[in-house]
Amino acid sequence: MNFIISMQAEARPLIDKFRLTKRNRPSPFPVFESKLHKVIISGIGRMQAAAATGFLIGEMKNMHGAIINLGISGHGEFPTGTPYLANRVFHPENKTIHYPPPVLNLPIARSALQTCDSPEMKYPQPIGYDMEAHAFCSTAYKGITRELVQVTKVVSDNPKDPLASFHPKIATTLISAQIESIAEIVEQLEHLSQELKLEPEVLDMIGQVKSVHHFSVTQSHQLEKLVRHAHALGFEIAELKSLLASSPNGKSLLSSLDQKLEPLRMLQ
């Protein structure tokens, strides 16, 4: 899972939970990562969020990875400590309104969220107020499947406990208290993300074949399609390997595989 988080104080519970280590090599933003997770500390505000999200997308291998914008926010109605998923994200000066798709099955509150350029102290509506989400969505949607881009916030201030009395270190406590809910969001999004990725055995097989024979760009596409079809039609990997071993070159392999698949190309 990938996270864009504005302050390190908000990220601390995740860094601990997922045992992330700080990246040593130079990077435009602080990055904490493990084999499975990555947290980028963007800094506060729309510009920072957009830049960090762009940086993250550049690091991702395909559009089917998931990203969460996590952090604290103000809210006009919810009590402090309430976690919620944003379902309508807008910025007063931007025509585009984002609607993060409702794909998660979790008993967690939903709310509209207004991204502001300075902290909102008056909470005029019963919605959330932050400083990054709109820019995060605007950038993330350019490279990532929309369903896999979600905004999760934990309420840090509201009309009863306004921002004036808030200390940034409280962010760690608030996020920490919701770490299990956040982990559930991560789990469900990871599951959806996995579903969209091509099956590992297909990717492995394509890789194996390409390491044995040379393929032109067109042949490469043909190969990928044939291996995909072979997998979909239940053609045994062992048989494919034996074809690979007996084919003198890429062209011959493509032709033999196509012939082998021919009688299987109908629903059983």
């Binding site: 309508r88 794909v103 929309r146 369903e147 959806l192 969209l196």
Partner: peptide, 19 residues
């Protein structure tokens, strides 16, 4: 969730029909 026009939700590219 209110919207101005259904196309704001239905039309954007990058949505995944399967999910």
């Amino acid at each position: 969730i209110p919207c101005t026009h259904y196309k704001e939700i239905f039309n954007p590219s990058g949505q995944n029909f399967r999910i």
